[in-house]
């Protein structure tokens, strides 16, 4: 039996019960504003208050990868008592997190560490960690089976999001979007897909309610769903609306969660996202 330990970053939006159930190490990214740096560990930063204050902040907050030293310390601790470490994190194309993790793990025997680019964000990454951990438990630490699970989950998950306003997304500079000029002229709400390490605008609509309809439509294209997490940047009502519009397409255990401020800072308060995992992912 091989004991595998899992490490991820706070942008995975994993629920506490999953983190505790599989003893997953979540290394926080950081949000900087007002001259302070806050770890996104659910303690240093009051998410509700943060999102509430965000539109009024005179200088726009920035997000930062964890320092390599913090990654090294936490990865080192995670490595104690396990045979193999699997690190699943935010894509290097979107953040320095991947590199901090790489540096943090560089002192460990490399044949006992596997670092994986999740290629996506929030629960698209979270599902990979969660089911990899489940597979590890069920197979007594079969690394090949774990990596196979990660691959399958990645293939069958989707992360779509809609910002309530373009402002934060534009400030973030993280959207590869040819029509950015159009947004300046005409009001445009994009619906974005996080995939293959990129955030892409896949639809443009005129109003946020049309964006919500589009999110629902995109989620419906993925049915039947094994998992659905509706994430929001302090917009619980909007998330509930998405859920009710999905009706029976939403699984009974659909989760509604506030998205991590490391993502929320870029997509802006009010934003909504759907993260789906298709049924049948284990065999396809």
């Amino acid at each position: 039996m091989t004991k595998i330990h899992f490490v991820t970053d706070s942008a995975s939006d994993l629920p506490d019960d999953v983190i505790n159930r599989y003893n997953i190490t979540v290394i926080p990214a950081f949000v900087n504003y007002g001259g302070q740096s806050y770890a996104d560990d659910g303690k240093a930063l009051d998410r509700v208050k943060y999102y509430h204050d965000l539109p009024g902040m005179t200088s726009h907050p920035t997000t930062a990868a964890m320092p390599p030293a913090l990654a090294e310390e936490m990865i080192g601790k995670a490595f104690e008592g396990c045979d193999h470490l699997v690190i699943i994190c935010t894509p290097p194309t979107l953040s320095g997190i991947y590199n901090s993790m790489r540096l943090g793990a560089s002192g460990l025997p490399q044949d006992r560490v596997t670092q994986i680019d999740s290629t996506t964000l929030t629960m698209g990454m979270g599902y990979q960690v969660m089911f990899a951990a489940e597979t590890a438990e069920q197979t007594n630490g079969d690394l090949k089976a774990v990596l196979d699970t990660i691959e399958r989950v990645r293939r069958n998950q989707r992360v779509y999001a809609a910002p309530e306003s373009m402002e934060f997304l534009r400030r973030s500079g993280r959207v590869s979007w040819a029509a950015a000029g159009a947004a300046a002229l005409l009001q445009i709400k994009p619906v974005v897909l996080a995939s293959e390490g990129k955030i892409e605008s896949i639809a443009r609509v005129r109003t946020f309610s049309k964006a919500i309809d589009k999110l629902v439509e995109l989620a419906q294209e993925q049915v039947p769903l094994e998992r659905l997490t509706i994430v929001h940047a302090n917009n619980e009502a909007g998330a509930q609306e998405v859920k009710s519009k999905l009706g029976s397409a939403a699984p009974a255990d659909t989760r509604i969660a506030m998205v991590t401020p490391t993502i929320g800072t870029h997509i802006g308060p009010g934003a909504l996202g759907v993260t789906t995992l298709k049924q049948g992912w284990r065999t396809s």
């Binding site: 029509a179 005409l186 896949i202 639809a203 443009r204 609509v205 005129r206 589009k214």
Partner: peptide
């Protein structure tokens, strides 16, 4: 027309 063009683009 603008509304239709958004649909077209999508």
């Amino acid at each position: 027309g603008i509304s239709a063009m958004f649909e077209y683009a999508n």
